[in-house]
Design a protein around this nucleic acid. Sequence first.
RNA 1: GCCCUUGUAGCUCAGCUGGUAGAGCAAUUGAUUUGUAAUCAAUAGGUCCGCGGUUCGAAUCCGUGCGGGGGCACCA
Length: 639
Amino acid sequence: MPTITLPDGKNLNFLKEATGIEIAGKISKSLLKQALIMSVDGELKDLYFPIKKDSSVKIFTAKDPEGLEVIRHDTAHIMAMAVQELYPGTQVTIGPVIENGFYYDFARKKPFTEDDLKKIEKRMSEIIDKDVKTRREVWKRDEAISHFKKIGEKYKAEILESIPKNEELTVYHHGDTWHDLCRGPHLLSSGKIGKAFKLTKVAGAYWRGDSKNEMLQRIYGTSWASQKDLDAYLNRIEEAEKRDHRKLGKEMDLFHFREESPGSVFWHEKGWALFQKLINYMKMKQDAAGYKEINTPEVLDRSLWEKSGHWEKFGSNMYTSTTPDEKVFAIKPMNCPGCVEVFNQGLKSYKDLPLKMSEFGKVHRYEPSGALHGLLRVRAFTQDDAHIFCTEDQITKECLTVTNLILEIYKDLGFENVILKYSDRPELRVGDDSVWNKAEAALLEAVKATKLEYTINKGEGAFYGPKIEFVLRDAIGRDWQCGTLQVDFNLPGRLGASYVDKDGTKKVPVMLHRALFGSLERFIGILIENYAGKFPFWISPLQTVIIPISEDFEDYAKKVSNKIKEVGISCLVDLKNHNLNYKIREHSLAKVPILLICGKKEVDSNSVTIRRLDSDKQENMELNKFLKTFSALNKVSSN
RNA sequence: GCCCUUGUAGCUCAGCUGGUAGAGCAAUUGAUUUGUAAUCAAUAGGUCCGCGGUUCGAAUCCGUGCGGGGGCACCA
């Protein structure tokens, strides 16, 4: 006689046992129709699961995240079923739900093509129309293994062998012809999935995510509660594509890439202007925060990299060069060793600490070709790097100071949402465990002191120390990893850095590595996507364009332009033989924030007529007032 | 690096089953002198990514290399 407690506190009584179907039916007809899955005392179960004891039960529909997740999971199963029907001999492996959809990895000699996706979609649709029933079975381990081996599913058998012995093994049947080893739960029948799904892409993926293993064929799909949701999702993707920095970079004439140097940026005038603005801004912030800017060589002798440990731990990513006299140099992949060499010049006292040295260093890393991605992943980039030499006691405070600076600059650039990722010791590392213990504890303390949301990433630290990464969330909710702060107890010692302490003895300083934008290249890519190319006035690479109404007003336009440039605002006079409408369209598409129209009216009143990007309002302003207003706006973070 | 996919004018793209290339925009020139998102006309512009092969003949088919895109792995 189980009593079922519903979320609203109501109780339902059943004679023998209750299923979700019966419970939903007692609540309402419409719920029975919409019910997809239920939770019994917090645990998700199939709707036909018999409840024998008193429990609290919640029924989920497609409106709940739980319901949507099951829809996606079932879509993945039906896809696998369709694939195995269409392509006999294909083995199934795993098929999880992911953000916005699902994938399923298959083992098949002949890879799937985009055309196959349409055929698979069609077959899925047919299976959904047939509304085949789902059935759950509990299997014995040995039977399951030998069964899957027998039917040629060697990956499933391998998965089975890795499942802990005490775990119950379940197999789900969809109709009479197809089944899969699966934890479940699942929908009652394939018809419950609906038709709001789409297979989106094919890709290779390594078995168990390990590049030493064979490559499987992965099919990605997305699945939603309604066609409307699916359309909205596809629309969101399209909107994100419009912001693609590679596309906008080309359209806005900011930079380009070419075959001769994959992964290295050719900056055009406007892109470089943007780059310089960010650097100047950062210099201003760092000067105020007590950093000393230095610069070190890009090419350094192999012996230094051997001493620093980079040669051994990072060598496969380094560009090297052999000179005509057979000396081996490496192009720096990091700025730190050079910075330590600067620290080592002259005797340092404890009074000099913490010593903050910044460097806008250009580094080169030979990234795998498949990793390259526009400005976001390049082989040559400029770091807004700095190294802070300090004592162990100063670590936590310095980490906090760095964090505050980071949050300030992110805010100035329009990013308010920041989360932290803390990473501890990796397998491949230098230094004793006792040293790592100290470094990790100090950094974690700083993380906690920020009071920001953070995640812990086991084993993902740098080879020389633990690190924090700063992740910012952009205008359309995507996360980007930018800044980093790393504690290093190793490098200063390796490169012989020391300071004289109060008691007159020499001690090895601790070194903090930090970069706030991370890579200027990458950060600009993120800025472009965040603003969809429509930068705030102060960082816009071309801030104003003057459009004279006709040739008669060229002189006035040039005069205005000179005055604008004098106050440090970039300005272009468009003297081309095109009409006003044409020029407004062209410069609006180029995302110039301010267009200034000059004709008879403006000459007579010594003024300009302003047209702001994305507004068709006309705003007349006396020239001197314009200069005053906009040079104020041109100051950092005034927008 | 691995799997799939892709590479035609400055840009966006067309070119069916092989017969040495086309459009729009941009550019140049001329006309027009324009008051808030494309004025008209003419002209010029291409080793069809590179290298091999098949063929009487290759942008098109095959092989290979390089680059781009989507994933996987990598991201110290």
